Computed example of a mutant assay.
Amino acid sequence: MRAAETFQLLPFLDTVLSLTEAFILGALIGAERQYRQRTAGLRTNVLVAVGAAAFVDLAMRIAGTDGAVRVMAYVVSGIGFLGAGVIMKEGMNVRGLNTAATLWCSAAVGSCAGADMLAEGALLTVFIIAGNTLLRPIVNAINRIPFNEEASEATYEVRLVTDPLSLPRVRDLLVDHLEAAKYPVSDVEIIEHGDDQVEVVAVLVSTAVKPSEIDAVVTHLEKQHGVVHGTWEASTRN
């Protein structure tokens, strides 16, 4: 039998060691994700780590180091597709990026194990778990800092509500006043609200602004004929 001819005890034991480490380290990473009820939890991270280790180990045994390097390249791109499956967009918010990145790192841990770099795989696991746990309080502290429009670069939108007949004039007024205040406009969108109202949305070029200056522009535009309401908002979606 071909299997009996290719079986070698020492390489087999080496494979057992690689897959065992990938299983244990993947379980450590996945346990933290499972505890936080993330989409990709314990089993997913274990399977990613063990799968990556199996492919790399197989390539090492068949084609040596060069073959393992080629397989690692495919593992990296393949896990990218898997990670995309856990990323979800809800309105302006995106969820799952951290979970996808963790899966990517689990594959790296498995690749280390498959390449017999056991110490490196263990070290990488420590950094992954530390990144998902020790940095959390720092992230929460940063998120609690009030948003400073003058010091931050973001996407700003100035919105005016008008009637369809006044739309062309109001749109030109909006752009002209923003340009005069040295806030260039990158795009203008028109949103219909029924038959009697439309909303003109001017998207500013990503830059830092002074809220008082934008407030002054919006206040002035609200006094113009045909303008029903005006407002502006900032977001960091880009």
Rank of each mutant, 00 (worst) to 15 (best):
D116E: 15
A101T: 02
R237C: 09
T39S: 12
A216S: 14
V161E: 13
L165V: 14
G78P: 09
G230Y: 06
E149N: 10
I214F: 05
V48Q: 01
S212R: 13
G114C: 04
G194W: 04
V205H: 12
M1S: 13
N148R: 12
T207W: 13
M117P: 02
A84F: 10
T125G: 04
M92V: 15
G78W: 05
G85W: 03
R33P: 00
R237T: 13
R169F: 11
V71S: 02
E150L: 10
I142S: 05
I190S: 07
L165D: 09
D196H: 12
E192I: 11
E32N: 05
L178H: 06
A154P: 09
N93T: 15
V75N: 01
A54I: 01
L204Q: 06
Y35A: 10
L174V: 07
G131I: 02
V48H: 00
L160T: 02
N238L: 15
V16K: 06
A53C: 02
Q37T: 10
A68P: 03
L10R: 10
Y74Q: 15
A154I: 02
S206D: 15
K89F: 09
V227S: 01
T207L: 14
G230W: 07
L178S: 04
A54T: 06
L82T: 10
R36P: 00
A113M: 13
D116R: 14
L47F: 03
V126G: 08
V218H: 04
K182E: 15
S77Q: 05
A216F: 09
R169C: 04
I87A: 08
P11H: 00
L47D: 02
L10C: 05
I87P: 06
T236R: 11
K89G: 05
R237K: 12
D14S: 13
S186L: 11
S111D: 03
E120C: 03
N98H: 07
G41M: 04
H225Y: 12
V198P: 03
C105W: 13
D163Y: 09
I138S: 08
G67N: 05
L47T: 03
V69S: 11
L13C: 02
A216K: 12
V50A: 00
G131W: 06
